[in-house]
Amino acid sequence: MLSKNNVQKIANLARIEISDEEAEKYSKELSDILGFVEKLNEADTDKIEPIAHITGAKNVTREDEIIEANAETKEGIIKNFPEKKDRFDKVKAVF
């Protein structure tokens, strides 16, 4: 069971501001889901190696080379900045 307090801690880690009412709601919903996934504990996995990926691919490498994007793509990326100064992405102070 996740308490409201737990939920606020998780939301803080996830960088999402949530209200007290939301925390209450999420506490119930997330607890329900975590209750459902308890089912996993019934599976005997003692001799099983975990897999992160189905293809079995490991360390797919390529040459470390610069491929220039075309001007249109570059402009497109810059246009999508929420705030900008000239061609730079403008951000708030860290502190």
Binding site: L40, N41, A43, T45, I48, E49, P50, I51
Partner: peptide, 8 residues
């Protein structure tokens, strides 16, 4: 645990 069950 879920990754192990995934393998299973």
């Amino acid at each position: 645990k879920a990754q192990k069950v995934r393998a299973l």
